[in-house]
Structure formats: C-alpha cells, structure tokens
C-alpha cells in the first residue's frame, strides 16, 4: 500500500492498532490524520452525500472565489475549474482520502462554489441509458 496514506480519523486508527492483530494495514503509515481532520474542521460526515464517481465542477462564482479559498478548498475549486472531475479523481490528484474530499466538496457545493453531477438514480433500471452506454462502449 502507498506509504503516503493519510488517516481520516486518527483516533480510530489508534484504537484499532491497540485491538487489532499486528498485521493490520495501518502499520507504518505516518499518522498525518490530525491534518486531514483539521481540513474538515473536525467533521467526519458531509452535509451532502457524494459518491466516489459524483462529478464536480467549479461554478462561475467558484472560479471567481478560488483565489480566496485556502488549502484543499482552493485546490478542489481550481482542479475542477476547466473540466468536471469525480470525487475519486480529486482525492487521487490531491493525495487526500475520499472522505476528506467528500466533506470539503459538500461545503463548497452548499456555498455555490461547485456544482455536482450525480450518478443517475436507479441506473440499473434505466434501459435508455444502458443502451446508450453499450453502444458507446462498443464504439470505443
């Protein structure tokens, strides 16, 4: 596993280390979780639920305000300025866990700096979309 892992909830990580077998995967990771926790201002849950593949793009308001945003807030707005990016892509490109992106991006959405493109609800029943998807993959 990437040694550069950032723990989301450091106190849970420590708790696990005490009660888990020594081969648990958190072993050897730098516990930079305090910082991750600080980014989210101590919250572990977002106000809006974002899936891994939910895509985000900066709004005009967000673009104008990007320079005034600090740390990950600014990074996220700038990264999805030119093209929409998923929560997972933002997480990978910023090297922060998905949970952190979820919390920060949810704030930015609520403040109108980002807009979101959610996965289609009940996508598995959406025959039209599935047909389009199949035609598109076939044509790749």
């Amino acid at each position: 596993m990437d040694p550069d892992v950032t723990a989301v909830r450091p106190f849970l990580e420590r708790g696990r280390a005490l009660s888990s077998p020594p081969d648990a995967s958190g072993e050897g990771h730098p516990h930079t979780g305090v910082r991750a926790y600080a980014i989210t201002r101590g919250r572990a849950h977002a106000s809006v639920h974002l899936e891994f593949e939910t895509m985000l793009q900066a709004t005009v308001v967000g673009r104008d305000a990007a320079g005034a945003q600090r740390f990950e807030r600014g990074d996220i707005v700038r990264l999805c300025d030119s093209e929409p990016l998923s929560v997972a892509e933002l997480s990978a490109r910023l090297h922060v866990p998905i949970g952190v992106v979820r919390v920060v991006a949810a704030d930015l959405l609520t403040e109108g700096l980002l807009e979101s493109f959610h996965p289609t609800e009940n996508v598995a029943d959406d025959v039209l979309l599935l047909t389009r998807l199949i035609a598109g993959v076939r044509a790749l």
Binding site: M1, V5, A88
Partner: peptide, 30 residues
C-alpha cells in the same frame, strides 16, 4: 489513479476486549 478511502467493518467478540462489537476503520487503496 490510486485513491484512499476509509472503510469501516464491524467484528464481534473476537478480540481481547470481550463480548462487544468493535468498529474498525481501515484505510485501503483503490
């Protein structure tokens, strides 16, 4: 790309703390 996510599991009564449900959060790479 590689991303990390915290995933939570629950295990019951398998560790030293006895007959309780233990919540475990592990960071995994995908």
């Amino acid at each position: 790309l590689t991303t990390e996510a915290a995933m939570t599991s629950y295990s019951e009564g398998i560790d030293d703390v006895g007959d309780v449900t233990t919540k475990t959060t592990t960071t995994v790479a995908m």
